[in-house]
């Protein structure tokens, strides 16, 4: 039995975790780290940018991604909630 498909909130958690480890990474690299096809990553990523959780900066033709302070705060809260939910046998949200 394989692992169940990740929920949206789990994907967001993985994206934020990946960005907290490596600053200023391109979206393609983020897709690799977050283990997500690029086309599936894109809409979620731009939503996070719109919400001010992730910052996308243009450097010539490439885009670099990093976590904003708001994104860090959300990640911290997600980590705490994840700890609680895991004890109750749940994945994140």
């Amino acid at each position: 039995m394989g692992r169940q498909r990740r929920s949206r909130s789990e994907i967001i958690f993985d994206i934020l975790e990946a960005l907290s480890v490596e600053e200023g990474i391109p979206p393609t690299r983020l897709a690799t780290i977050a283990n997500l096809p690029y086309d599936r990553l894109q809409p979620i990523l731009w939503e996070l940018v719109e919400k001010g959780l992730v910052e996308a900066s243009k450097n010539g033709r490439s885009t670099r991604l990093s976590l904003t302070p708001k994104g860090f705060r959300l990640l911290k809260e997600l980590r705490r909630i994840k700890k609680i939910l895991l004890d109750f046998g749940l994945d994140i949200l």
Binding site: R8, S9, K51, L74, E77, L78, I81, L93
Partner: peptide
């Protein structure tokens, strides 16, 4: 959290 990032 649900409001901020969606989910169930």
């Amino acid at each position: 959290l649900t409001l901020r990032i969606g989910g169930e």
